[in-house]
């Protein structure tokens, strides 16, 4: 069964993925998956770990490494957000200009 939290952190489930209960196997060694982009996970105390396969990621997320470190404004800044902000500024400025012109016409 697909877990939403796992998907949020690790990306979509690979095709044919079968859940493995690794916690019951202390000798399990994680193998790197070249198709998987490395993901950084954090626990509640702010510790971080890098995982290199979906299985490893799923294991850690289900084990409590599913906290997103609080993002500061700067870290959260991305071009999409910034571009939306610019458009809002433009729209507001244009509306103010139009209203100003209307006011002039009325007076």
């Amino acid at each position: 069964m697909k877990n939403k939290i796992v998907e949020n952190f690790c990306g979509p489930y690979p095709e044919g993925h079968v859940f493995q209960d690794i916690s019951s196997n202390p000798n399990y060694v994680f193998k790197n998956d070249s198709n998987f982009d490395q993901v950084m996970l954090s626990d509640i105390e702010g510790n971080t770990v890098y995982v290199n396969s979906f299985i490893e990621c799923e294991h850690y997320v289900l084990g409590g490494w599913n906290y997103s470190p609080p993002k500061s404004f700067g870290e959260g800044l991305d071009l999409l957000m910034f571009s939306k902000l610019l458009i809002v500024v433009l729209i507001v400025t244009t509306i103010i200009k139009i209203l100003g012109k209307l006011k002039e016409q009325i007076v």
């Binding site: 991305d78 071009l79 999409l80 910034f82 571009s83 939306k84 610019l86 458009i87 500024v89 433009l90 400025t93």
Partner: peptide
Amino acid sequence: ADLDFRFFETYQIIFAFVLFSSY
């Protein structure tokens, strides 16, 4: 680094920046 030119969204972002600067 943060834009993928295969997606339309990328051009929307560029357009917003260009439009603002042009304005």
